[in-house]
C-alpha cells in the first residue's frame, strides 16, 4: 500500500502523537543524568527532584519576603494584562475591520494607514510607550494592543472581502440598510472568524507580554523567568515555560471550544456538510 494511503487507527494515532513528547523527556532525562553524574551541583539541566522542589517553592509555599505564593501572583498579573490587551485589540480590530471591510469610504481612509502601521515593529515602540504612559500596567497592555490589533484588522478586512458578494446583494433585496447588513449579515459571520484570528495571534500576544514584563515589571511570568535567569535557576525557568505553554494551549483550546459551541453553523459551513 502506498504511504499516502496508510492511515493510523485511533490507538496508533495516540502512540504517534505522544512519541515526540516522550522523546524530548527521555533526551532531557538522559542529558540531565549525564551532567549530574559529572557535577552534582550542575544548574543547566537539573533533575526531576530539583523541579519538584522548585515547583513546591513557587506554587505551593508563600514567599518568605512577601507572603505571596509567587506562581499564582505571577500568573494572575500576566493573565490580567494578556486578557485586557487581547480584549481591547479584538474589540478595536472588530470595529475598524468591519468599518474598513464594509464601507468603501472608510476603507479608503483606513486601509493604507493600517497597512503602514502594521509594519511598525511593536517592540521598537516599547520605549516610547514607557516614556509616554509610564512603566505601569498601561504600557504592557498597550504593547499587546499595538502588536496584535493591526494584524486583526487586516485579517478581518480580508475575511469580509471573502464573504460572497451575493450575500450583500441579497440582503439589500430583502430590505436591509448598511447598518442592518453590518449587524445581521456580516457581524455574525465575522465573529467566529475573529476567534480564529485571535487564536493565531495568541503566540504574538504572549511574546509582547513577556517582552514588556522582562524589561520593566514587578510581577508576571515573564518578569519571574528573567529575574531568576540571573541565578541560572533552570529549575524555575523550565517549569514556568511549561506553565506558560500550557496556559497558551488552554486558551487556544478554550477559544476553539467556545467557537463551535457559539457558532454551530460555522464548522458545518467550513467543512461543507
Amino acid at each position: 500500500m502506498r504511504l499516502i494511503n496508510r492511515r493510523p487507527d485511533r490507538s496508533l494515532w495516540l502512540i504517534l502523537a505522544v512519541l515526540p513528547f516522550l522523546a524530548l523527556l527521555i533526551a532531557y532525562a538522559a542529558g540531565s543524568a549525564v551532567r549530574l553524574a559529572e557535577n552534582p551541583a550542575d544548574k543547566l539541566l537539573p533533575g526531576l527532584t530539583a523541579f519538584a522542589d522548585a515547583i513546591d517553592r513557587m506554587a505551593l509555599e508563600p514567599d518568605k519576603r512577601t507572603g505571596d505564593i509567587l506562581l499564582w501572583v505571577d500568573t494572575g498579573a500576566s493573565l490580567t494584562r494578556l486578557v485586557a490587551g487581547i480584549a481591547i485589540a479584538a474589540a478595536g480590530g472588530l470595529l475598524v475591520g468591519m468599518l474598513a471591510g464594509l464601507l468603501p469610504l472608510a476603507r479608503a481612509a483606513l486601509s493604507p494607514f493600517v497597512t503602514v502601521v502594521s509594519m511598525v515593529p511593536p517592540l521598537a515602540v516599547l520605549p516610547i510607550l514607557f516614556i509616554v504612559v509610564g512603566l505601569g500596567e498601561a504600557s504592557k497592555i498597550t504593547l499587546i494592543v499595538i502588536g496584535v490589533m493591526p494584524g486583526l484588522i487586516r485579517d478581518l478586512m480580508l475575511k469580509i472581502d471573502d464573504l460572497p458578494r451575493q450575500q450583500l446583494i441579497k440582503a439589500q433585496t430583502l430590505g436591509a440598510n448598511s447598518w442592518t447588513i453590518a449587524i445581521r449579515v456580516v457581524l455574525p459571520q465575522i465573529l467566529p472568524r475573529l476567534m480564529d484570528s485571535i487564536r493565531l495571534n495568541l503566540g504574538p500576544a504572549w511574546l509582547f507580554l513577556i517582552s514588556a514584563e522582562a524589561i520593566a515589571s514587578e510581577s508576571g511570568l515573564g518578569y519571574r523567568i528573567f529575574l531568576v535567569r540571573r541565578y541560572l535557576a533552570m529549575d524555575v525557568i523550565l517549569p514556568y515555560v511549561a506553565w506558560i505553554t500550557l496556559l497558551c494551549f488552554l486558551m487556544d483550546w478554550g477559544l476553539r471550544a467556545a467557537q463551535s459551541r457559539a457558532f454551530p453553523w460555522f464548522d458545518r459551513a467550513r467543512t461543507g456538510q
Binding site: Q166, I169, T173
Partner: peptide, 18 residues
C-alpha cells in the same frame, strides 16, 4: 442600488450560512 422591489436567486451563495 438593489432594493426590495427586485428579488434575486443566484446559482450559489443565495442563502445565509449562519
Amino acid at each position: 442600488e438593489p432594493g426590495p422591489d427586485r428579488g434575486v436567486v443566484f446559482q450559489r451563495y443565495s442563502v445565509f450560512p449562519h
